[in-house]
Computed example of a mutant assay.
Amino acid sequence: MYEVFQHYIEQQATLSPSESDRIRSVAVIKKLRKKQYLLQEGDVWKYNAFIAKGCLRTYSIDEKGNEHVIGFGTESWWMGDRESLLSGAPSRYNIDAIEDSELVLFTKANFDLLTAEIPAFNEMVNAILQRSFIASQNRINATLSLTAEEKYLNFIQKYPGFATRIPQAMIASFLGMTPETLSRIRTQTLKKK
């Protein structure tokens, strides 16, 4: 699975063979079965995780036992709890596999060394962080300003493959609505086509 990550890196940055070898030397491959945790609430997150294969979700559970999906990740996406990684505080989130998945992990210490040692890698990481910040802003704006139907249409437009890979109840949670509301919206949307 490292080859998937290697291909991703080659599309993002120009590296020398020795830089590529250095990155590979600190990478750890992690396989998850469907429903297996990558991170559990209360644990400290210590990695930068690249998804080479599969689909994962980040979510929290409130005091009533309700799940609140914060985000999804699929091939060529990065996953983790940045707050826990940077602060060393226990995570408020769970991350588990929606499908059998394979990841490439880097400890924080090794990742920091790579960004210090390899300028092109550092530039790639900064670009990823900027895109992530913009995506978070867009998600907040959509949550605050769109109707339930607009949220769903926006979701399927931005993430067309997700609707077939992710259970509807998880999508509903991500969009901040009940599964029943999502089912009704999906039915209405199909009738309009």
Rank of each mutant, 00 (worst) to 15 (best):
P179E: 11
I156N: 05
K53D: 03
Y37I: 00
E150H: 08
K151Y: 10
K192F: 02
S145I: 04
G80Y: 05
A52R: 04
I9V: 13
R139Q: 04
E63M: 14
R184E: 02
V104A: 01
L113V: 01
G54I: 03
Q36P: 00
V4L: 11
G65C: 04
A169L: 07
E19C: 02
P90I: 05
D62A: 06
N122T: 01
Y159P: 00
G71R: 02
K64W: 13
L129N: 13
L86P: 00
D81T: 10
Q12D: 03
F162W: 07
I156G: 03
E150S: 13
Y152S: 05
L113A: 08
R57S: 05
I98S: 01
Q11S: 15
M124C: 07
A172K: 01
T58D: 07
K34L: 14
M1F: 15
K151F: 10
G161M: 08
R92Q: 14
D21K: 14
E123P: 11
Y37L: 07
L105E: 03
P119C: 11
A127H: 15
Y47W: 11
L190H: 09
L39C: 05
K30M: 10
Y37S: 13
Q168G: 08
Y59W: 08
E123W: 14
T189R: 00
I134V: 14
F50I: 08
R92E: 08
P119G: 08
R57I: 05
A27E: 08
I118E: 04
I9D: 05
N154V: 01
A172I: 02
W78M: 11
I51D: 07
L175V: 01
V4R: 12
T147K: 08
L32D: 06
I156E: 06
E123G: 13
K53R: 11
I23L: 13
P179K: 06
K35T: 09
D81S: 14
F174L: 07
L129P: 02
S16D: 07
L32G: 03
N94Y: 14
G73I: 00
R82W: 14
A109D: 08
A169Y: 10
